[in-house]
Design a protein around this nucleic acid. Structure first.
Lengths: 216, 216
DNA sequence: ATTAGATGGTAACATTTGTCACAATCTATG
DNA sequence: CATAGATTGTGACAAATGTTACCATCTAAT
């Protein structure tokens, strides 16, 4: 019927079986949100499982003082494993998800989760695959925090960002970066300047250009 | 038909449906390991899902230099969520699991995982519940690393340990603690001494006694 | 009993990260 | 164009953590 429904079957025909796609179309809603919009926050009850059609969600953890740490991005064709497990028993969300860009997603009602797991092998596989990859991303975050210094974490952050956006130009202020890696602006400025002196980046206002030598 | 089989049905009769218990008994093996034994290491293929009958497993992450970080404990009636997702597609383990005490567990062959998820609602619930709780433990670890200083992490570690063992006496050397929290012995000694001066612990050789004031 | 190895204490110093202060520059808006 | 606010640079200092070095003491093995 609409472009959105076309997209759904189109995008996921190789992932989900036809019956599941049909049921998904019948029971889900397509939702569009603008860049910067809050999709779910810590403590709020999870009301649906988002399955991304386009755009990127940023998932982060926030402590009681409001200090934040980026956990991972959810991009097209992906979902957020946290919602899977939350929705089984109606638990509140442990993470914050914000639209990193304009986002279109399928909102799957949490009630069907349980049934689909038993009914559709492709759904079960998708869930387990998603859980696995999010586990690995959390473990990677833990590695970074436990074993790496901030300068290495910063490089890693920039490279990840570059891979996520497909560009070597990062449009972020030092303040925003500091927020994502749970540090402070001055420290990030200092480390970025060091990277510039090492010939790994070029610094502009609200923009960082990654040079070849930073990848390796 | 030994005590072990009795335990299985006994311990899990309120968790799993009778048919599942029967199939579990038929297809699983009961395995005993001694304290200190390595159950699975990073990079090794996961060959079974452990379901603990008694004792405690310690699950940790290790970096390329051998530096280690405790992630969480798996105790009686629990399992390790990582194995669930690994076994679906025969992925290697991302974590190390060592017997913290003498351990008895049911080794469930990974092949049944997929089928059981669809066949037994209680298994599905157990899996999702386990995944959820491990997610939360990883998030908690991330919080600690990102937002807390080492002295707070140490207190948290000691209190967790006390809760896990049910005793306010912790039998560990400073070296072992340093290893669990990915720090160094001298730093831990220094911080423990500070805790002792604050009246929160008493220090002995290979032993730390937690005082009331540390809980709060 | 002697001794080697494990454990713990601690001073001194290095490095990493965070904080404060303030200036310079850029950008958007009236 | 004038100005307020956002962004970046940077020195100085503080705090947290890691490292080195060395010693004292305890424990287990011979």
């Amino acid at each position: 019927m609409t472009i959105s429904n076309y997209n759904l079957t189109d995008k996921f025909s190789s992932v989900f079986e036809p019956e599941l796609l049909k049921e998904m179309e019948a029971k889900s809603k397509i939702i569009s949100v603008k860049e910067g919009e809050l999709i779910i926050d810590i403590g709020r009850t999870v009301t649906m499982i988002p399955l991304l059609l386009s755009g990127v969600l940023k998932v982060s953890r926030v402590d009681e003082n409001g200090k934040e740490l980026l956990l991972y991005y959810v991009s097209a064709n992906q979902s957020c494993a946290m919602t899977f497990t939350c929705c089984m028993q109606q638990y509140p969300s442990e993470v914050r998800a914000v639209a990193e860009s304009d986002v279109e997603f399928i909102a799957i009602p949490i009630g069907v989760m349980d049934e689909w797991l038993m009914k559709y092998p492709t759904w079960k596989s998708f869930v387990m695959r998603t859980v696995r990859s999010r586990f690995n991303e959390l473990l990677n975050t833990i590695d970074q925090l436990a074993f790496q210094k901030l300068d290495e974490r910063l490089v890693n952050y920039l490279v990840d960002k570059s891979n996520a956006t497909g560009s070597t130009i990062i449009n972020l202020s030092h303040e925003e970066i500091a927020n994502d890696v749970a540090s402070s602006r001055e420290v990030i400025s200092r480390l970025l300047k060091k990277l510039e002196n090492e010939g790994k980046v070029l610094l502009y206002r609200n923009q960082i250009k990654l040079l070849k030598t930073i990848f390796s």
